[in-house]
Design a protein around this nucleic acid. Sequence first.
DNA 1: AAAACGGGGGC
DNA 2: GCCCCAGTTTT
Length: 210
Amino acid sequence: MLVLELTETEKVIKIVDELNKLYKIREFVNKDPYKVLVRTILSQRTRDENTDQATKNLFGKYKNIYEIVDAPTDDVEELIRCSGFYRVKAARIKEVSRILIDQYGGEVPDNLKELVELPGVGRKTANCVLVYAFELPAIPVDTHVHRISNRIGLVNTKTPEQTEVELAKIAPKELWIKLNDLMVQFGQTICKPMSPQCEMCPISDICDYC
DNA sequence: AAAACGGGGGC
DNA sequence: GCCCCAGTTTT
């Protein structure tokens, strides 16, 4: 069988295309920047099911930033308990909310520089806000994106930030917005960290991992 | 019972 | 870069 020789850019296009047949691009909490930010903090080192449940619990009771900043911390902790790391996350959410109200008029900044200055917001979380709330081109690199990109030989990097830089070079900009969400779903269901289900992988023809 | 897991921060 | 943090899931 003829082995296709694709450029890295062509590989990205193919990967997005194939994964897009399998998974839907999700729209997180109606692109409300504050809710996206909170949901993303809740998602840190956490699976989707638990993230979604915690997000529902929290915003089911407290509607916006002003209600959350005044909410009792133990109640917030209880509502988001199912997402794990709930004490840290509750503290971060309340701290960030306070800062946004005090310094940004209750709005979420739409640029990387100001976002990463917020406590509990690193590069991955900030990029998620830019992509999912503001629809700006950014590539949130979590461990799924980092692992998969390296596993299939798309990049050869050591840190997530290096992966972000390399992916930005080879991926067409209009695809950036899809990369994280597709790879996360792929990483949770097929290209898993420990036991990848290579037999049902839609992109095995461009991957020699197995 | 470990070890790993959709990060972030402090040093 | 290394280590710590801290609930949950997987091995």
